[in-house]
Amino acid sequence: MGNADLSILIIDGSPDRAAVVERGLVEAGWVRVSTIGPSVNLLARIQALAPDVIIIDLENPDRDTLEQMFQVSRLVQRPIAMFVDQSDSQMIHAAIEAGVSAYVVDGLRQDRIKPIVETAVSRFNAFDRLRRERDEAQAKLQDRKLVERAKGLLMKNRGLSEEDAYTLMRRTAMKQNRKLADIAQSVITAFEMEL
């Protein structure tokens, strides 16, 4: 049986991240990949999908429910936590740090699980990096809007040219060791108070 035959289930509170992980696994050659979101009827769905490997985000509250179900249920093959096999502690560390946990059917060889977990970890990290970059980009856009508005106020009320208004704020920011956007915010607040 080749690697592609393994059935993999992704459970993630974030459907966007689940989609990214799923695509990553499919692109790497695993074809039997499914995802489910938060659900009160997890066991029935897991039973229907009969996964060999379950990838679930570490902080998912459903993990507590799942672990106990695995222990008592005769309906699903008993999956065990990936963390039980400590032969590769580096992989486990990378997984926990990325927020990935995995359950595998008992007896499945470590070398078959490892590439799956590694793919999931790299996709989790990539997703988080993208999200961070998006948040930063949004913050930057917000900053730029503040600076534009403050510049406009200075030009209108102090009769400065655009360049002078900008230079004044940048110099003040450097002198006070503050961010340009903070200074812009102060300028806006000051003019708003005068109104």
Binding site: E59, D62, R63, D64, I96
Partner: peptide, 8 residues
């Protein structure tokens, strides 16, 4: 949000 996560 999960005891399993805290444990790990």
């Amino acid at each position: 949000n999960s005891w399993a996560a805290l444990r790990d």
